[in-house]
Design a protein around this nucleic acid. Structure first.
Lengths: 206, 206
DNA sequence: AAAATTACCATACATTTGTATGGTAATTTA
DNA sequence: TAAATTACCATACAAATGTATGGTAATTTT
């Protein structure tokens, strides 16, 4: 038997990874439901194939006990939604352009997503090009918090400052001037609050 | 009924948090086994009490479906083993001195742990005082990687450089001189490799 | 063309799991 | 002192879950 995965096996494995990255391991029934199967024995067969090919391991008779075995990687890939400029706005992509191997950040706040920062306009806030910021879209930024926003169909990550009739987006780097937005600006939309940053060190070998 | 938890309820909740932070949700039987109960109905009662007090939620008839409800926090606390100096060595504590609310880093590499960095000796490596480093103890540092080590019963986080008969621990900050260690030094022990850093932004309101 | 593989379905069964109910002894509260 | 709570145990049952086995049709490989 080849180690090559069939289309459906890939889909199921992807689903398992996606669920795992939310901290869940589905049952056979749940997988069957997800893929529209009438019977969990269909999933049973696919999981069995994935196990034979070495992509996962089952623990007999234990519920929700599919252990992923992603080539000895410690990390589970998570999609990065787009690159975002700390300086000039960059386009945000509707689909993932990239995956980052986050240390299995599993239960990120619901709906939260990742953005990779480009540029050095936030370097005085200790955020550097290449860092990944974790954005919680269910929060409204308070003054002084780092926020992600969409401006003219592009995304920015800046320190947020609400004033009387305007919103200021500040860089920490004096080389960049603040962006001032009128409150009524239709082309401006707060996306969420940066609740954390993550930086992988594994490729930082000098 | 009070919202106060009994000793055993705290122990069970702690166990649930600990398991959750490894990406697992135990069954009643598994909890019973962990605490030496002969019967899972004992756990059933404790979980029921925890639910009534609002600390978790159960989804009826679904296995491994205890959802923790830690006061609407998005985050699950994880113990921070100790503070570690980027500059001068600081003591590493055997038990957690603190918990950090990591964005539910759930499947950290096995056995990995967190250290909070103090001091600015790694600032040129973009690691700052207060940052939390994720240390993987199952890796040996390569030259140039940031490593955590124990030196004279204290812990340091430094860039690692192996030379002929010595190991050099380099600061990125020119104010700190490199620490040079003889390979035979009994009081020196590599603890692991820093595989990532995490910084929470939530309290960074200026 | 024959054999193997793939993708599904159906059924049956043992185990696990969640849950309901009732009981006992010790401790705490009223 | 009486009542309530706590911490355990035991039993019973339904639902969920994993697993074994066999089948069909389509596709791919040999």
């Amino acid at each position: 038997m080849s180690k090559q995965l069939t289309k459906i096996q890939v889909q199921i494995l992807d689903f398992l990874i996606s669920e795992k990255s939310c901290g869940k391991t589905p049952t056979l029934s749940e997988i069957a439901k997800k893929f529209g199967y009438n019977n969990r024995s269909t999933v049973q067969q696919h999981i069995s194939a994935l196990e034979k090919k070495g992509f996962l391991k089952r623990n007999p008779n234990l519920s929700r006990n599919i252990e992923l075995n992603l080539e000895d990687k410690f990390f589970i890939p998570r999609p990065v939604l787009g690159e975002v400029a700390a300086g000039t706005p960059l386009t945000i992509y509707p689909d993932a352009i990239d995956t980052i191997e986050l240390p299995t950040i599993a239960h990120l706040p619901k709906d939260s997503f990742l953005l990779r920062v480009k540029g050095d306009s936030l370097k005085d806030a200790y955020i550097f090009s290449g860092d990944v910021v974790i954005v919680n879209p269910n929060m409204l930024p308070q003054n002084g918090q780092i926020a992600a926003a969409i401006l003219e169909d592009a995304a920015v990550v800046k320190r947020f400052q609400r004033e009387d009739d305007t919103i200021k987006l500040l860089s920490e780097n004096p080389e960049y001037a603040p962006i001032v937005i009128n409150k009524d600006n239709q082309k401006f939309k707060i996306v969420g609050v940066v609740i954390g940053i993550y930086r992988s060190m594994e490729k930082n070998i000098v």
